[in-house]
């Protein structure tokens, strides 16, 4: 998490607020690939937003709940907590064509895809289903006749999934109903799943909920707050747990588990090991874990 400062606000379409977020120390924020998102702390919520641009960060927020309303109230000079970038919707670099299908505010990650494809001279086509048309002017200038704009009713007319060159990859971002329509049509046209990419707007690293770690040998109950790892809580309590990657991969921080209801999130333990061990760097519990410490 770093604190960025709102350097500019704009309204690219009714109900949509664009925030430009700069590093107050100057210099670019951490680089991110096309289609990446960040998690913004908006009051007591955390929402994921695609990066429209990366230097500085630009996000477009549609007002649709408490978190987004909080962001709509920000003004230049305000500060906001921003996670590191996460990439779950990156372009497939080997694609012979990038076929982008955007619905409404789902255009934001695909705008960065379109810019990247044009920059590197790759074949790109876009179908943009919209009513309000955020960023439509920029896309028209960028893509020319490679952009098709459509209403919800005439999506199928604008998007021919039976006539795309071999090697095309399909990227869809927008309302779930539109995504399902496009993905179902692609499957009927024989597209393998590995050529279809959808952005589901899911938030990245889940902070989890607070739980208790019961240390049986020392007889202590340790509170692990939301957003703190079990490993971090143990270390804060003065317990030295050897650790290396802190990503649930290396196995170094493995601890013997005696009871409770663990939520395993590591990539290290085999299924049969999970009843008796836990990786505290990433794993948590529903309410309680009991450790041999």
């Amino acid at each position: 998490m770093t604190e960025l400062v709102v350097s500019r606000t704009a309204d690219p379409a009714p109900g949509i607020r664009e925030l430009t977020l700069a590093d107050p120390r100057g210099g670019p924020p951490p680089a991110a690939p096309p289609g990446a998102h960040v998690v913004l702390t908006c009051g007591d919520r955390r929402n994921a937003y695609s990066l429209v641009d990366t230097d500085p960060y630009v996000v477009a927020v549609r007002r649709q709940g408490a978190g987004s309303s909080w962001l709509h109230r920000l003004a230049p000079g305000d500060r906001v907590e921003v996670s590191g970038p996460r990439s779950t919707f990156a372009p497939v670099r080997t694609a012979r064509r990038h076929l982008l299908v955007a619905g409404g505010i789902g255009v934001t990650p695909l705008l960065s895809h379109a810019r990247e494809a044009v920059r590197w001279g790759q074949d790109v086509r876009m179908v943009y289903v919209h009513r309000r048309g955020a960023y439509a002017a920029e896309l028209r200038a960028l893509l020319g006749d490679r952009l098709r704009e459509a209403g919800r009713a005439d999506l199928e007319r604008a998007l021919d999934l039976t006539d795309q060159p071999l090697g095309t990859h399909l990227y869809v971002c927008g309302p779930p109903g539109l995504q399902d329509r496009v993905v179902d049509a692609a499957a009927r046209a024989g597209w393998p799943g590995a050529r279809i990419h959808r952005e589901r707007f899911t938030a990245a690293p889940e902070p989890g909920v607070a739980f208790t770690a019961r240390l049986r040998r020392t007889g202590r109950d340790l509170a692990v707050p939301e957003g703190t790892t079990l490993l971090g809580a143990l270390e804060a309590a003065g317990l030295a747990v050897p650790s290396q990657c802190r990503q649930g991969v290396c196995g170094e921080c493995r601890l013997p588990l005696l009871g409770g209801r663990p939520l395993h999130r590591d990539h290290y333990l085999a299924p049969e090991e999970r009843a008796a061990a836990i990786m505290p760097c990433v794993s948590r519990a529903e309410t309680l874990v009991e450790l041999d410490l």
Binding site: A32, G84, P85, S87, Q247, C250
Partner: peptide, 9 residues
């Protein structure tokens, strides 16, 4: 698996 999940940077 570790490399696949490495976040940007």
């Amino acid at each position: 698996q570790f490399l696949l999940r490495l976040p940007p940077g």
